[in-house]
Design a protein around this nucleic acid. Structure first.
Length: 325
DNA sequence: ATGGTTTTTACTGCGTC
DNA sequence: GACGCGGTAAAAACCAT
């Protein structure tokens, strides 16, 4: 058993520029007339100064409805949209569903004759819904994705992305020669990383029915074929989970983040397993905030060897020392 | 396939409760 | 004596070439 993420871009160091660019983008826009803050009015597609009311930009895309409604009933009637579609269902939730209860729209029970009719309709509807093999394939895969996501405690948006990835894989005929389970697992792994709530390969592997090698192979394949950009996992994204698993204070968590940042500045992060870094940072932070956690406990929750924690956390403290002292 | 790097495994010594 | 911690050497795993 080994823990090492697949990080294609692993060896490229984070350059200082990326940091600066982030700062720029968060800059507040200022009114040229009075210096007040600018506010985007997306309803009317304008950018307006909140102080003097100067309209700076017009004719942006107006995303509001083209009709006007004066009360809720009006809105219901004029709106032409229904429930949002979701990729988590194999037909995006757009197909017809027939309730299992033999009740009509008013909640009354159906007559015997009607009941039989509905039963037949249900049968046929089900047959049409999972018409061809692709649909059946998807249905099974999405079930798997759902199961694994739950087991890993991943939020809905990750399931959604995983579903999209799987759909794309299916559309591009990546499935032949690979197992549904394998591609589904790879999709979950990729989606979790893309969403910034990564789970380690071993964790994902733990809830999957396929073996590790198949997972890594399939994952690489899917990433390459779909041209998915998956940045190496940020060590910090593991910190909250580890910290809470170990019942550490928020202070320790913040401390752990700082340690990672310091090491990042020092350029010591590249090439090292993000999970190991996170585990070491959490351990070191607990030490610094006088909370008792043993190396073996951390290694337990992080699925990383104690030796790695030792090596990393020494480096982390050194990096911190360089910055502060 | 090969080489270089990182992680793991296994083992040992030291100090403390 | 068990436990936590630190270190080392050799093996395994991984990535890039």
């Amino acid at each position: 058993m080994s823990e090492s993420e697949i990080h294609t871009h692993q060896r490229t160091e984070t350059k200082p520029e990326t940091r600066e660019r982030e700062d720029e983008s968060t800059d507040e826009l200022v009114c040229p007339e009075c210096g007040g803050k600018l506010k985007a009015d997306t309803e009317h597609g304008e950018t307006v100064c909140s102080e003097c009311g100067l309209v700076v930009e017009e004719d942006e895309i107006d995303r509001g409805p083209e009709w006007r409604a004066f009360d809720a009933a009006d809105r219901d009637q004029k709106s032409r949209v229904g429930a949002p579609t979701t990729n988590m269902m194999h037909d995006k939730g757009l197909s017809t569903n027939i309730g299992w209860q033999d009740k009509d729209a008013y909640g009354k029970s159906l007559s015997n004759r009607q009941r039989q009719k509905m039963q037949r309709l249900r049968t046929w509807n089900e047959r049409f819904r999972t018409r061809d093999s692709k649909e059946r394939n998807l249905k099974q895969a999405l079930g798997e994705i759902d199961r694994m996501s739950s087991a890993l405690g991943l939020p809905d948006n990750v399931r959604e992305t995983a579903s999209v990835i799987y759909r794309r894989a299916l559309d591009e005929d990546l499935l032949p020669g690979r197992s549904i389970e394998g591609v589904a697992t790879a999709a979950v792994y990729a989606a979790a990383r893309q969403a910034g709530v990564p789970r380690s390969l071993d964790e994902v592997h733990g809830v999957s029915r396929i073996d590790r090698m198949e997972l890594t192979r399939t994952y690489r394949y899917v990433i390459r074929e779909l041209n998915l950009e998956v940045a190496p996992a940020d060590p910090e994204s593991y910190v909250p989970r580890f910290a809470s698993d170990l019942d550490l204070s928020d202070e320790a968590e913040v401390r752990a983040r700082k340690l990672i940042d310091a090491a990042r500045e020092d350029g010591r992060l590249s090439g090292k397993s993000p999970v190991g870094l996170a585990a070491a940072a959490v351990y070191a932070a607990a030490l610094l905030t006088n909370e008792k956690v043993t190396q073996s406990e951390v290694s337990e929750v992080a699925d990383i060897s104690e030796v790695t924690i030792r090596n990393r956390y020494k480096e982390l403290l050194e990096a911190e020392g360089v910055v502060t002292a």
